[in-house]
Design a protein around this nucleic acid. Sequence first.
DNA 1: CGGCATCCGTGCAGATACTG
DNA 2: CAGTATCTGCACGGATGCCG
Lengths: 144, 144
Amino acid sequence: MVKSVSSRFPAPVRADAEAYLAGPEEETTDPRVERLVNELIGRVADKWTLLVLEELEEKGTMRFSDIGRAVDGISQKMLTQTLRQMERDGLLTRTVHPVVPPHVDYALTPLGNSLSAAFCGVWMWAERHREAVEAARAAFDARA
Amino acid sequence: MVKSVSSRFPAPVRADAEAYLAGPEEETTDPRVERLVNELIGRVADKWTLLVLEELEEKGTMRFSDIGRAVDGISQKMLTQTLRQMERDGLLTRTVHPVVPPHVDYALTPLGNSLSAAFCGVWMWAERHREAVEAARAAFDARA
DNA sequence: CGGCATCCGTGCAGATACTG
DNA sequence: CAGTATCTGCACGGATGCCG
């Protein structure tokens, strides 16, 4: 997701440069853990992932095309990709019923449910402050 | 951010097709509001936005290049872009001190702080379940 | 110092077609 | 139905150079 081998900002005073060699369990400041957490957030805060997550949370179990119809604007390709990633991350289970025509069910795991719960605050924020953000945008655009 | 004019999934049974004409304040199901909220989440759940948000939350006020140094891997271009968007959305204030060399301070607004708080649950989730996700990935990859 | 303008590569995502 | 495979483009993001 991130290259970060590139010419980023100079870091002349990297005080915690080798701090991770000393403290083995300083969770919040260990740069390696921080990077992993950042990466995980970036992965999981993906737009389609969020929408699929919410849809499954409220509907329980859904078929492939049900999700595709419920999530506005997603393509089959992105849906497949998103579902695979989420399955890989342990967020949902994929159950194939060997019948014709094929029938595949998706459902959240407890881990997926917990993530959904964690995002609850963000959804509430978005709903509560939607108008404030729109107003801020209008004001900003008016100045420019 | 989303085209969505494209050939998405067919929606043969769109029961709530004109529901938004009837109920004026059915917040949770109004498709227009839902779209706006989704768009807002997509905007705000951006990777760089999240990282800048966290950095400003913990440091208070920061200068342009301070943020650039604190956020690992971000380029000047992306930083400028992210900061502009956040300013436009009312998440932070940009204060230019007219001295030479230029001095520009960035700080979160109350709205920005509230967003940061809303994401708190997600950060905690990521820290708490990081290992579970890694284990799930390993298991998934082993099967394939 | 804190940008903005420009060029440019590539990776993501859409469209389309095909299959078990 | 639930995918895979392939082609394509274009937008995102990196690198560089210049300016107030």
